[in-house]
């Protein structure tokens, strides 16, 4: 499963970090960093993170 975040849209709200800390985190400057190749077992959490993104910037691809 692949995660794609539109970094032109992302505003570092951090909602995804709380929904799926295994995939998303904020760096020392408070900017989003994430893993793009994610184990299938985390699909539900990835979908949750996409749901709670205020900018709807996260896409979970098969």
């Amino acid at each position: 499963m692949k995660i794609v975040v539109d970094m032109n849209v992302c505003q570092d709200h951090g909602q995804c970090v709380f929904a799926a800390p295994e995939i998303f985190s904020l760096d020392d400057d408070g900017h989003l960093v994430y893993q793009s190749d994610v184990d299938e077992a985390l699909r539900e959490k990835a979908e949750d993170a996409a749901d709670v993104c205020p900018l709807q910037a996260i896409v979970v691809e098969d």
Partner: peptide, 10 residues
């Protein structure tokens, strides 16, 4: 701004 500080306080 201060996103890291904000997130820590959350």
């Amino acid at each position: 701004g201060f996103n890291k500080e904000l997130q820590a306080l959350r």
